[in-house]
Write a protein that binds this DNA or RNA. Structure first.
Lengths: 214, 214
DNA sequence: ACCTGAACACCGTTCAAGT
DNA sequence: ACCTGAACACCGTTCAAGT
């Protein structure tokens, strides 16, 4: 069991082992005692190197968030580049399935978005938005992307829901629109939905005639 | 301490006491032993009436979700009515601060939105959308609203973030747009942001010329 | 049918003691 | 400086026993 690198225990070795545990079995499987067993050391050694469980999870989030890296927009128009930033962030977050929940529990969703924020500001300026309008645009995209990822992760974890949409839209409950009933009863194409929503939001907020101009 | 209604212990009395504990101190404060103490009964009696902790939380979510009630749209146009549905759902969820996290943990965010779904389908039809297009519209609004509430709740729980937007946008980091730097460094008007985002999404998706029409 | 105490198998954390 | 075992104060859950 003790897969720890023999020799002196280091803070990094503890974090590495903890990250592995979380990656393989989720955050709830990370117990101080289990981690110590995996490292072949005493529980209390972990406290010496990284502190308690909370500090350990903090360090883990920090470490994973750091290698999300910077985000390079691509596309011809500001709108297209904003959409590309959204897609990149979503993809990166999906590569670390447990991170999202961990970050959410810690109230760090805001920080999660920081690397993307500068890029979005540049695009907002390029699209002619400035000041408070630009800030609101950046925030709207941020809430949209992070919110979508949270909801998406959520429904992946709980595939069967009762009573769910299937039952609700099973019969001819949708008046005279069977195609709609079928669509709502079936699974969601979250990738497509994400694209649709982000594109719609960007289109509306970058339109020359915003609804709250003045 | 024992605030329990004297006499026979009922499933309802247990749920009532549990709901009070969660409302006052949050879900993590709900322990089987603490609840038993509050009820002036043995821990194991709770197991007889409602089952374990997981079943207890399930019942609590069920019960709170039930009194979210149906949603009546208001407004002159379909677009305005959709926005009103979004606002109503957001307001109701904010009245039960702990519910959102509880529902999220249980993977029930989808169910949370069911009462609003029928109303949205009606408005989609009224706006001329049908079939898959209408379904996608409903889903987009659903993800938007629930996602926003999740992010909003999250940042309320963790007001101080380091390094946060304040530091990032403190200096003249935003090129030549001090108004934007100030806006991004300051707090978020989530209510206004919610309105802006929902209105933008609805405007774009209900526009006669959608970007992905056939 | 309803309620009980005791016991089991876990937790995270602290602390005094070792080297 | 680093690591240890023992102990503390909790958990949720099960079970055999009571009435």
């Amino acid at each position: 069991m003790a897969s720890g690198t023999r020799g002196a225990l280091t803070r990094d070795a503890v974090l590495e082992a903890a990250a592995g545990l979380v990656r393989r079995h989720g955050p709830e499987a990370l117990t101080m005692r289990g981690l110590a067993a995996e490292l072949g050391t005493a529980v209390t050694s972990i406290y010496w190197h990284v502190g308690g469980r909370e500090a350990l999870l903090d360090a883990l989030v920090e470490r994973t968030m750091a290698d999300l890296g910077e985000i390079r927009p691509s596309g011809a128009t500001p709108g297209a580049r904003v959409v590309s930033v959204a897609h990149t962030l979503r993809r990166r977050l999906r590569e670390h399935p447990h991170l999202v929940a961990l970050v959410h529990e810690r109230g760090l969703t805001e920080r999660m978005f920081l690397p993307a924020q500068q890029a979005l500001v540049r695009e907002a300026h390029a699209a002619g938005l400035r000041g408070a309008r630009a800030a609101e645009f950046v925030r709207a995209v941020q809430f949209q992307v992070v919110g979508h990822v949270l909801v998406e992760r959520n429904r992946e974890r709980a595939p069967a829901q009762h009573p769910g949409e299937e039952e609700l839209w099973g019969a001819g409950a949708a008046g005279d629109d069977p195609a709609l009933a079928r669509a709502l009863a079936g699974p969601v194409d979250t990738e497509r939905l994400f694209t649709t929503a982000v594109e719609a939001l960007v289109r509306a907020l970058l339109a020359p005639d915003g609804s709250d101009g003045a």
